[in-house]
Amino acid sequence: MIMKQRVGIIGSGFIGKGLVKALNLMDDMEVIKVMTRTRIDGRSDFPYPDLLTNSIEDCIEHSDVIVECTGDVLFGTEMIARVMESGIPVLTMNTELQVTTGSYFAGKGFITEAEGDQPGCIAALRENALQMGFEPLVYGNIKGFLNPNPSPEDMYYWSKRNKISLEMVTSFTDGTKVEFEQTLVANAFQTKLMPNGIYGVASEDLNEGANALASEAERLGYPISDYVLSGKAPAGVFITAKHRDMEGQRDALHYMKFGEGPYYTLIMPFHLCHLEVVKTIRRVLEKKEVLLNNTSTPSYSMGAVAKKELAVGTRIKRGIGSFEVRGRALKIDDMPNHIPIGLMEQATIIRPVEAGEMLTFADVDIPDSLAYQAWMKTREQSILPQGI
């Protein structure tokens, strides 16, 4: 009889529900507990309500590995801290948390992002590319549409149509989500962004856009993390690279319909969210290997840029996915006093801010939290080597 590995889940939304269903098909794993903040007796939408618990201790007690997929930076940080104390490995499907507080945990225990979301899919594609002898120049995301300042009316419409939260659809649309993803990729692989941050090349043809980014990476002299904006490309990720044996493999790559070079683009034309998480769970349980995380000393963070003028006293319930601010990647050394957008929950503006301005801690009052404390420790560790 196969002894099943026990998987705990923190979060009962879209990812949590889908992951429970996916794991229910597996012979070697099972979900015992799903931790939720919601009222259990009101969750008729959840596929297996008997698994729900409001106790993180209950979830920890019945788990060999835990997947955090709350989509909430502050709450997720509190929960991961509790799991870390137990020594249980943590997987996340929460890029925003990884970039904001994941580095704090990377120095304390086992934490990895999972396949399924774009950073995890890029990490898996990178492993494949390296094994085939490719040298990545671009770690790329594919974005189908972008509007940095969408209207509430449009976002309410798409939220209802796609059955996802207003905050999620807004962060997808205004560019916050894709910049979070590519910031995590840059930190994870210790590569760089372009000097002015994440650029995003608009191109109907993915290969043309990818080649333009690769050419820029060669000019800069280092691999970059960025994206192509293309409504015609698949909803996936790509790596554009050169081959280590360019002359020896050129004819073979041409025969295999990879073009003339010198740049070759490997595409993963999908990311299937919770369905792919299962692969990373097995990786952790069997090999104890990290797929990717934000590292303990990241170079890049995600600041908050005002979408409009913000008067003193303006309250922001949650920065990510709001109509007041959007996320923007930045180098920590360049602006160490920026306020990460992931920390902006129940925030109050205390100094007038102009539209387009990057917010700092001097502009915003936020409640104390473990996430805030974690960020301050991460910032200290990240800037000390440069003598700041």
Rank of each mutant, 00 (worst) to 15 (best):
D27P: 15
T173K: 12
R37I: 11
Q98H: 04
L74W: 09
V31R: 00
M3D: 12
V67L: 13
A212T: 15
P352L: 06
T36C: 06
S299K: 15
T378N: 03
V73R: 08
P152N: 05
T314A: 06
R328G: 11
G175H: 05
M256C: 13
G313T: 07
G133I: 08
T53F: 06
K163C: 11
G209H: 12
Y139Q: 06
L229K: 13
E345Q: 15
R244I: 10
P298T: 05
L19S: 06
S296N: 12
Q190G: 13
M302C: 14
T112M: 11
P269W: 04
S86I: 01
E218T: 05
L359Y: 03
E204A: 13
S159K: 02
V364C: 04
P89L: 01
G231N: 08
G116E: 00
L206Q: 02
T95D: 15
W375F: 15
E286I: 10
T92E: 00
L330T: 14
S86W: 03
D205H: 14
V178L: 04
K232W: 07
A311Q: 15
L229F: 10
Q131C: 13
T297M: 13
D72A: 09
L130I: 08
P150Y: 01
F270Q: 12
L19W: 05
P119V: 06
V325M: 05
S103D: 08
V7M: 03
G231L: 11
S12T: 12
K307Y: 11
G76K: 02
I111F: 00
A329M: 14
I316M: 12
S151P: 09
G200I: 08
A214H: 09
K4I: 03
E153Y: 07
Y48G: 07
R219C: 09
Y263I: 07
D117W: 07
T265D: 05
K21A: 07
V290Y: 05
P136K: 06
I198G: 00
I15S: 05
G116N: 00
L193K: 10
L266V: 03
I341K: 00
M302P: 08
K331W: 01
R351L: 11
G120N: 11
G319A: 03
A311K: 15
A214M: 03
C273H: 14
E127V: 09
M302L: 15
G140W: 02
G248P: 09
L23H: 08
Y264G: 11
D72P: 00
G11M: 01
G102T: 02
V20L: 06
E247Y: 12
D368Q: 15
T101M: 04
T265S: 10
L52S: 08
G102K: 01
V228Y: 07
M35R: 13
G197I: 09
